[in-house]
Amino acid sequence: MMRWVFNVAALGAAAVVCYGMQSSKPRYKNLIAPIPVHGSMVDKVETRLFDVHIGKVVFARELKVTEFGKQKTLTTDGLWAVVAADVAARDRTTRVGAATWLGPTGLRFHQTERFSSRSDLPPISVSPGLPQRGLFLFELPPGEVEGATLVFSHTVFSALDSQANIALDRVPLDSDGTPLSVVDVYDLDRPI
């Protein structure tokens, strides 16, 4: 009888251990996830292929740009965030291909795709010894400004590669979360 009880208990314990291991097993997505290098806006954040330092973050209601000799105004329902960052290659020519605005609640806003290619918009090609200033443009609702983190990576899917996660400084906001410093029109050809 004792032996029987012991066997059942051992089986139950094994089931609990197996369930625990199954539910705590890291998912494939986590196993191959990019490796973040954390920093703030005062830091130069160093990843495997490039260094990045945020120079300036400007919020605007509209963007003005000259494309193919034609002036274009880009509107949005939310805000434009223009992030000017200095990027430098470490030991070989590389590109900074993707940037994401990670909101305070975890929403991921990818860089906008509403512009034709410009050399200062991603993918930005950088070479050793020749740092460059790149512009990263995002469309966001006002509530996503406070407590955001900027993520810079080499490519959109960069498994197991390092990426720069830079926490943004606080900016003074009005009641609905719009930064007080928001400008009406930002001209990409005449950076502030």
Partner: peptide, 14 residues
């Protein structure tokens, strides 16, 4: 809004 072809749409932005 500006005739962009197939842009990604961002969370919560109509």
């Amino acid at each position: 809004r500006d005739a962009s072809m197939t842009p990604a749409l961002h969370p919560g932005m109509t």
